[in-house]
Design a binder for these strands. Structure first.
Length: 502
RNA sequence: GGCGGCGUGGCCAAGUGGUAAGGCAAAGGUCUGCAAAACCUUGAUCACCGGUUCAAAUCCGGUCGCCGCCUCCA
């Protein structure tokens, strides 16, 4: 099956064909590190994380570059407010960003260049643009001349005339055209500054992404992503600079832009002051709930991250977790070496697992339709639950094997979307040697504690047998307080660490 | 003013020509010492009007409503 994705440039879905077969080069505009990131930013990185994971799943080798904008007015202002250097501010929030991404289970980029470490490349580009007549110098500033670039406006779909007509901002008199933008700004005393042919200064915002993407990926790389608010002017300007500089086109093969985050019907934005930080949300909701919420809406549509929506997503996530929990405790012992015969129903069920995978891929192949893909996953959950329900009445010899296959399928599909991501390096290894314990989840327990829980549950089982329900309920509720959930099934108890309730 | 998007069951959300996925919530039922989970059952003609078609939520035209971009912003 081939993958189609929506290209902002053509405003339609196109078949995805990377520049180099089997390899995808992508660049996503990274954060300006002057504050903790909010969930609007978070959504963008989540979206591209999923795209990246899916491309990998499809067998592509993906090379992912995401920059840090570490020189900028906002950083300078922030530094001034806090009596720190811009670099201190930038490094602090860069680290915070990495922490937030890790908490969201967003895979780290292959390369994350910093603007301040790419100055020579930017200067080279700017110099060339001046030489080619695409840029001009005024009082130590360098501006890109939009009129010198024929295709200006092609990404955002507007002409220069329209932009001039709709001009709302007071125009800098020194600019030849209102839309001309700064490639280089002369710096005032106390600001970060680098030497340049036009005097001490610092780069404009747009040039860094051109310089960094060209440095690491070259002209004509595959996917350039970001939020829809970057389409104009940021990405429009990147195209102009890069294509004018290289004399080649296109700069990027596919432009991918995600929709905004709303908080109760309103766009979340700094100017409206309704921002919610990723780290604050993660204090209240598991990362997978946040991710699931993002996945349940197509990436190009607006999405509401209000408390009600998060609450719903959390419960939906629990449905997934419950299913895995039930499967885990059902499978309990390892499957037999020789596969026992499956019933007709089990043969069909096993076959259907491949069907679910196929439908999942179909959804994802269609412009990363994660909402549809999640629908497929939930349908699979229902199938598996129904099967487990049947097993309460008549268990068949092959059932652990079938359940295990189902579990593998479910986990596999979830992980493509970044849900139930395995713990980062190392942590999983030490548990690998252990006997699987019913109900235990990866990384949540250690053997001694597990043994004690099992012991308590044996005591509880005895109490129940003797109809000492007060004792049984006491043990269950005390365990719950300690973050251990116990369910009674027809054939016994099952348990898992679920974490303490707030 | 220019450009673009959206309006699907109580809420969220897929579906873009053949009589509507999924999640959350609700009601009834099954199971059960209780609880939890799960399973079964129940509900939408897709903003409105007109048109094209054998057939439209899905295409075309119009109306109403909502939103975004055009300025730093993911």
């Amino acid at each position: 099956m081939s993958l189609v994705l929506h290209n902002t440039m053509t405003r339609r879905k196109e078949e995805f064909r990377p520049r180099e077969e089997g390899r995808v080069l992508m660049y996503v505009c990274g954060p300006t590190v002057y504050n903790y990131i909010h969930v609007g930013n978070g959504r963008a990185y989540l979206v591209f994380d999923v795209i990246r994971r899916y491309l990998r799943y499809k067998g592509y080798e993906v090379f992912y570059v995401q920059n840090f904008t570490d020189v900028d007015d906002k950083i300078i202002n922030r530094a001034r407010e806090e009596g720190k250097t811009p670099q201190e501010i930038a490094r602090f929030y860069e680290r915070a960003f990495r922490e937030d991404m890790r908490a969201l289970n967003v895979l780290p980029p292959d390369v994350s260049p910093r603007a301040t470490e790419t100055i020579p490349q930017m200067l080279e580009m700017i110099k060339a643009l001046v030489e080619k007549g695409h840029a001009y110098v005024v009082d130590g500033d360098v501006y890109f001349s939009v009129e010198s670039f024929e295709g200006y406006g092609k990404l955002s779909g507007r002409s220069l005339e329209e932009m001039r007509a709709g001009e709302r901002v007071e125009v800098d008199e020194r600019k030849r055209h209102p839309m001309d933008f700064a490639l280089w700004k002369s710096s005032k005393p106390g600001e970060p500054a680098w030497e340049s042919p036009w005097g001490m200064g610092r780069p404009g915002w747009h040039i860094e992404c051109s310089a960094m993407s060209l440095q690491h990926l070259g002209m004509g790389f595959d996917i350039h992503g970001g939020g829809q608010d970057l389409i104009f002017p940021h990405h429009e300007n990147e195209i102009a600079q890069s294509e004018a500089y290289s004399g080649e086109s296109p700069f990027v093969r596919y432009w991918v832009h995600n929709g905004f985050v709303n908080i109760r019907e309103e766009k979340m934005s700094k100017s409206l002051g309704n921002i919610i930080l990723v780290r604050d949300i993660l204090k209240q909701y598991p990362a997978d709930a946040v991710r699931l919420l993002a996945l349940q809406t197509h990436y190009r549509s607006p999405i509401d991250f209000g408390p009600e929506a998060l609450e719903e997503a959390k419960r939906a996530l629990e449905r997934l977790e419950n299913c895995l929990f039930a499967l885990d405790s059902f499978i309990a012992k390892p499957p037999p070496r020789v596969a026992p015969a499956r019933t007709q129903r089990e043969v069909e069920l096993s076959d259907s697992f491949f069907d679910f995978e196929r439908r999942f891929e179909e959804a994802m192949d269609d412009d990363f339709n994660t909402a549809r893909a999640m629908g497929v996953i939930f349908e699979l959950v229902k199938e598996l639950n129904t099967y487990l329900d049947e097993q309460q009445h008549f268990q068949t010899p092959a059932s652990p094997m079938v359940a295990s296959h189902g579990r593998d399928t479910l986990i596999k599909l979830c992980r493509v979307l970044g849900l139930f991501a395995p713990p980062p390096e190392g942590e999983e290894v030490e548990r690998a040697a252990e006997e699987p314990v019913a109900g235990a989840e990866d990384g949540d327990a250690f053997p001694a504690a597990e043994g004690l829980v099992e012991l308590l549950l044996e005591v509880r089982a005895m109490a129940r047998e003797r109809k000492q329900f007060e004792t049984a309920d006491f043990i269950r509720s005390r365990l719950r307080e300690m973050g251990i959930r116990v369910d009674d099934l027809r054939e016994g108890q099952r348990w898992k660490f679920v974490g303490r309730e707030e």
